[in-house]
Nucleic acid binder design. Structure first.
Lengths: 310, 310
DNA sequence: CCGCTGTGATACCTCCCCGGTATCACCCGT
DNA sequence: ACGGGTGATACCGGGGAGGTATCACAGCGG
C-alpha cells in the first residue's frame, strides 16, 4: 500500500528540479499527462501535497523539499546497489579512487605505490574530479573510496580515516609585494588589490557577491592563477599546481586541512579495507618524511570515528 | 535500461534471505513463477549471476552477497523517504528518539527536560528498542535521532555528537564474594563460577559458544540478572536497571562507553538540530553535576566528526 | 472583450508486463 | 523406477503505465 517505486522517485525528482511538468516529462522521455498522474499518485499514496500548482509554474511545498532530499539519496543508493553488484560480478574489478585533480599529489603517489607493493592488491583506478564531486561519486557507487579534505568537504555519511594534516599557503605571482614575506595571515590576503579571491558556486549554483572571478572547475582556476589574476589559499601539498613564476607563502592562521580517505559505510569489502590500510600507511610515511624534512609538522588530532572496514 | 525497481529489490532480498523461491514467494504474497522470472530479469539486467541454483535450495554468489547488502540499505533509504515525507506533511510531527530501554536513563531525562524547556521545541516521542535496533530505525526513517553507545554500537553512516563518557560496572548479587570488592578487572569477572556472562546473538542469528545463557532482548537479560543467573558489565549510568539485592562494582579496565546522539546525515531539519543542541547541553549539564558529585569523571575525547545539523 | 498562448488536469485508448495457473525438467531420496 | 520437491517454462488475463486529444484556466495584447 505504501512503498514508492524508483520510477516514481525519478519522476518526482525531475519535476522538482525543473519545476515544470512539461520540461520534466521531456527530460524523462515520456509525455506530460502520465507524469502528472504519477505525481498525483505519489501525493495520494503519501497523503501529502508535494507541489503548489500555481497555473504558472510549480513550487515545492515543505514536504516536497523533504522528499527531494530523501529521494536523491534513495536513488543514489539504488544506483549504487546496481553498480557495485555489476562490479562484484565481473572478474576484472579495479577499485575506483576519486580525488580532486591536483590535490594531495604526493600523498596519492605514495598511496598508489604502497598499495601496489602489497601482494595481491586489487588494481586501482584513479578518478579525478572537481571540487565537491567526490561525495556524489561515493554515494551512487561510481567510486569506492575518495580522498577528501576536512573541513572543506562534506564528510557526512562516510567513514573516514585521517591521513595527513597540513597548513595552507597563499599562491602569489613572484613579483607581488606580498611574495617576499615569510608568512602571511588571512587578514593580509583578504582584499589584496588586484588579486581578488576566486568565487565558487554555492550549492544552488549561484555565486556569492565579491570582486573575484567566478570559477566552476579547477582548470579554470588553474588558468586564472597562471594569468596572475587571482589569489589562492590552498593546502601546502597542492603545490603540484604551482607555476614557476609563482611563490607559495604560508598563511599561518588559515584553518588546517586534513586529508582523509573516505568510503561508504556500507561497503566493507576486503579490497576497500586493504586500500584504506595502504592509505594510512602512506599517510604515516609522509608524516615521517616531514619530520626528517625541515618543514612544519602537523599531526592529525581527531582519531578515526569508526574502525577500518573489515 | 539499467535502474532497478524497489519491487525487484524487495523480491531479491526475500529470496536471498529465505534461500528458497517458494518460501520467498509465499512471504511476498505472490506465486513462485513470477518471482523466478523477476530474479532472472534482474540478473540479466545487471549481467551478473546472483544465485547458484543447485536443484536443492539456492546459495548466494559473491555478487549476490554484495547486492543483498546494498539492496537492504537502498530499500531503507526508500522507506525513509516515504516516512519522512509523510511526517513533514503532517502538522503534528513529533521527533522520534530511539534509545535502548534502560540505558542512559538520567541523561535521557535531562535531555527531555532541557529540550522541553526550549521555546517552540518540537514534541519528542521516545522509542525504546532492543540492542542494536537503533541503526535500522534511523536508516529507514522510523526514528529521527537515537542515543547510541560507542564503541558497542555501529555508528557507521551517521553523524554523531558526544554527550557523555563513563566507565563500566559489574552487576553482582549482593552476597557474592566479588560484591565486596571496591573495584574489579575484566580478568576478575571473566569465568566467574556460577555467573557466566550472557551471550548475545551475532548478526546472523547464531550464538557464540560459551557457558552463559542465550539472550535476545533486554528484558530477558533483566530477568536473568534478577535471578542472579548471569553477570553483567554495563555502563555505570545503566544502573537504573539495578535490583535492590544487587550491587555495582566498577570494572576499572573495561572500555569506556561514550553515549552519543546520532542522526542520519541526510536529515538536517531545524527540529533535529534543536534536539541535538538540547542533548549536548544536557550532556554538559550531566558532566558538571559529576564534578560536584564525588564520582569518577570521564571526559569525551574525540570531537564531533561533523558539524551539528543546520 | 476576445482570442492567443502556455500551463497542468482530464478522458480515453492501447499495449506491455506483472502475476496467476498448469506443467515441465531435474535431482533426490528411498 | 518412482514419487516428492525444487526452480524453470508456457501461456493467459487484467491492471496500469504511457500515448493522443482535449479541456480549464490564467495572463496578455489587440
Amino acid at each position: 500500500m505504501d512503498d514508492l517505486e524508483t520510477r516514481e522517485l525519478r519522476y518526482f525528482v525531475a519535476v522538482a528540479e525543473e519545476l515544470h511538468f512539461g520540461r520534466a516529462a521531456d527530460r524523462l522521455g515520456i509525455a506530460q499527462p502520465p507524469l502528472s498522474r504519477a505525481i498525483r499518485q505519489v501525493e495520494r499514496r503519501l497523503g501529502v501535497v508535494l507541489f503548489e500548482r500555481d497555473r504558472r509554474g510549480v513550487v515545492l511545498t515543505d514536504a516536497g523539499r523533504v522528499l527531494l532530499r530523501e529521494a536523491r539519496t534513495a536513488l543514489d543508493a539504488v544506483a549504487a546497489a546496481a553498480r557495485r553488484t555489476r562490479r562484484a560480478g565481473n572478474p576484472e574489478r579495479p577499485l575506483v579512487l576519486a580525488t580532486k585533480a591536483g590535490a594531495s599529489h604526493d600523498l596519492l603517489r605514495r598511496l598508489l605505490d604502497t598499495h601496489a607493493a602489497q601482494p595481491g592488491a586489487a588494481p586501482v583506478e584513479v578518478l579525478l574530479c572537481e571540487v565537491g564531486e567526490q561525495a556524489g561519486l561515493l554515494r551512487d557507487g561510481r567510486a569506492d573510496v575518495a580522498l577528501m579534505h576536512r573541513p572543506v568537504d562534506d564528510l557526512a555519511g562516510f567513514d573516514t580515516e585521517d591521513l595527513h594534516t597540513e597548513g595552507q599557503v597563499a599562491i602569489l605571482p613572484a613579483g607581488h609585494p606580498l611574495a617576499s614575506r615569510r608568512r602571511l595571515t588571512l587578514a593580509d590576503v583578504r582584499d589584496v588589490p588586484g588579486l581578488p579571491i576566486a568565487r565558487w558556486p554555492r550549492l544552488d549554483g549561484t555565486y556569492p557577491e565579491g570582486p573575484g572571478p567566478e570559477v566552476r572547475t579547477q582548470s579554470q582556476l588553474a588558468q586564472l592563477v597562471a594569468l596572475g589574476r587571482t589569489l589562492l589559499v590552498i593546502p601546502a601539498s597542492s603545490r603540484a599546481w604551482q607555476w614557476p613564476d609563482h611563490v607559495a607563502v604560508p598563511v599561518v592562521d588559515a584553518p588546517e586541512i586534513t586529508t582523509v580517505i573516505a568510503w561508504p559505510p556500507a561497503s566493507r569489502s576486503l579490497e576497500v579495507a586493504a586500500l584504506v590500510r595502504s592509505a594510512v600507511a602512506a599517510g604515516a610515511a609522509g608524516e615521517a618524511e616531514r619530520w626528517t624534512d625541515d618543514r612544519r609538522h602537523h599531526r592529525g588530532t581527531a582519531g578515526p570515528r569508526s574502525p577500518a572496514p573489515r
